[in-house]
């Protein structure tokens, strides 16, 4: 069905581009017309957006700007020995070994306690990444990754407790829906009109959140990305009744997630429904309250 729609869309777009009318194009695919119409109307809008004239003198102005930088920059420097690929590899290995050797030192121990926004926090993340890279056993790496994910949650809780406003990111299971968003990993995540929501955020799905801690103990999300549907860990809450058109699009999305492509994370479809109106009727317990904030692990 998905492929059929996609192929029909290809034909329709080409015909529209060649000057055929929308109705004439749709008449060729009567069984898909209901689904194709909104897509083709959007395509016409998308084409219209590309119709503009370039401003007068654009190329000249741009050339002047870029040329001035070109002349200031001068000729490229000769490749230094340290930039040669073989030396870069050796240097990287050396740095990694040095990191490991020094990992018990106080500076690194201090970094382990760092929170987002702290000076040593980037160092903490680098050390974690090195640990991940050096862990070759997939199961051990998985364990390590989950441990680091828990670190992110603990850091967020610690920031909330201390009332600091910082940008954080963490993963977790969506446990409930609230008036303003969801509860992810036990942390209330609020969305605004500027939040970018990617994928279908449903209860039981794993979601990646990036946002800012708020003084009220919540997170104001900048982005929320839903994990793969296969990550669903609890019984899925039934969706509200949809119109035929929306339901058809959702079916297509579900098919898209079955493809081997990692495109599943890019779906921004169903989220739009969620962001429009987080309806209490979608959750079995509309009176859900925020969980008490846990004390971060030392």
């Amino acid at each position: 069905m998905k492929k059929q729609l996609s192929d029909a869309l290809d034909v329709c777009l080409k015909s529209l581009k060649d000057g055929e009318t929308l109705e004439a194009v749709l008449a060729r695919f009567p069984h898909l017309a209901a689904e194709l119409r909104p897509l083709l109307e959007a395509a016409q809008a998308a084409w219209m957006l590309g119709q503009f004239d370039s401003p007068v003198g654009l190329v000249t102005r741009g050339r002047a700007r870029v040329s001035s930088v070109h002349f200031r920059a001068g000729k490229p420097q000769a490749v230094r020995w340290i930039l040669r690929p073989s030396w870069r590899v050796a240097l990287t290995v050396l740095i990694v070994v040095a990191f490991l050797a020094l990992s018990t030192n106080s500076a690194f121990a201090g970094a382990a306690q760092a929170l987002p926004g702290d000076t040593l926090y980037p160092l903490k993340r680098v050390i974690e990444n090195i640990q991940l890279v050096l862990t070759t056993d997939p199961s051990q790496r998985q364990v390590l990754q989950e441990e680091f994910n828990q670190h992110r949650v603990n850091e967020t809780l610690a920031l909330i407790l201390s009332g600091r406003v910082e940008v954080v990111e963490f993963n977790g299971i969506v446990s409930s829906q609230t008036q303003n968003g969801w509860v992810v990993a036990g942390i209330p995540v609020n969305v605004s009109s500027l939040t970018l929501i990617d994928g279908a955020i449903r209860i039981g799905v794993e979601a990646s959140v990036s946002g800012e801690t708020q003084p009220d103990g919540s997170i104001l999300a900048i982005t929320i990305v839903a994990g793969d549907e296969s990550d669903l860990q609890v019984t899925q809450i039934p969706e509200p009744i949809e119109t035929n058109e929306t339901a058809a699009i959702e079916t297509d999305e579900a098919e898209a997630t079955e493809t081997a492509e990692a495109e599943a994370t890019e779906t921004a479809e169903a989220t739009l429904r969620a962001t429009k109106t987080p309806k209490p009727t979608r959750t079995p317990k509309p009176t859900n309250t925020h969980r008490p904030i846990k004390t971060p692990k030392p």
Partner: peptide
């Protein structure tokens, strides 16, 4: 192609 469909549907 899949991304195109999602983008057009979302735009509409």
């Amino acid at each position: 192609k899949a991304l195109r469909i999602r983008a057009l549907a979302a735009l509409q």
